[in-house]
Amino acid sequence: MKSFQYSIFLLLIAFTSCTGEYDEDISNVIQRKDSEKTIAISGIITSEYSKQTIVVSRSIDFSELYLSSDGNPNKFKDAFTNKRVGGAKVSVEVAGKKYDFKEIHDSINYYGMAYVEIYYESVDSFAGVPNQEHKLVVEVEGKTYTATDVMPQVSEITFNENSPLYLYLWGGKGSGDTATCYPEYLFGQQEAFIMGFRAIPTPEAKQFLGEEDHNYNELISNFGHPSYSFRQLASPQLIGAVSENSGITRINPGNSENMDLTDTVAISKMSCSPPYEYFLYCLFQNLKASKYDFGEMSSNLPTNISNGGVGFFSACDVKRKDFNKWELTSLAHSIGNIVEPR
């Protein structure tokens, strides 16, 4: 009986794990059906008078990326090259005027490695026009891609308790310290907009960080989540905790209790046309799905690029205003608690 009991005990312990995982052989998965490489175009024309930018790149096929067991370097791609496309002819038409773009080669340094980024910048500064259709034309590699978007007029900066906002932090130069919020659900009668919150470093913070335009993510990742000690150096507390992995969380812009009286937050509000709103909504679902096992349907994002292109071209009206702690508190209504990033 003792040996019987012991056998049962061993059998029970043997069952210690339900699932396993392994790296699948890519050839079992890559089934090249709609595999033609596509041109991806992205750009936002704003109502702010400035040089506008458009990015033209090429999709990457996964068959180019898998790491072979023999470590053959030809089997995978450089991380930052061969995606941007040069040699394109780019123009934007709005309100009867046509603006040409020129190709820019930007040298960037990423973790000590030098790369060249290609994008297109308008020859002249111009501003998008609210309530007008904006048309993009890109001629590249023997094909012509067009896209149109009508720029909605943006309303004043307020915090409406009926418009729950979700936070998405975009990386990249110049936007790393901007926490950007989008409406989560699609409701036809609701205005769609993007809210940007940018902490303006206090003089003490600038002294600590130097004059460079530091990436906000870098500040967080190097110094941890915003804390009371960090509050004395900069003013990110309004935004609450953000995730260095582009997490999505819910914020209450009115919860400014952690702000100093001298802290300033630059808030921007950008209007979204209904097609752009839907594009952003689907982008969010895609990002959520990548984080959780109980995600959404795997499917392609919508696009307004013609001729088989992907990406999105949008036109957004922008309002900006700086707020100090008291202005913000009196403006905002309570729409929930600050929560930690997911």
Partner: peptide, 21 residues
Amino acid sequence: GTFSQGYYEYKGTKIPIYNKR
């Protein structure tokens, strides 16, 4: 299943390209 076969970049974010559902 619906597998992705590649991706493109939009504002620094990788967007998968999927085959038909």
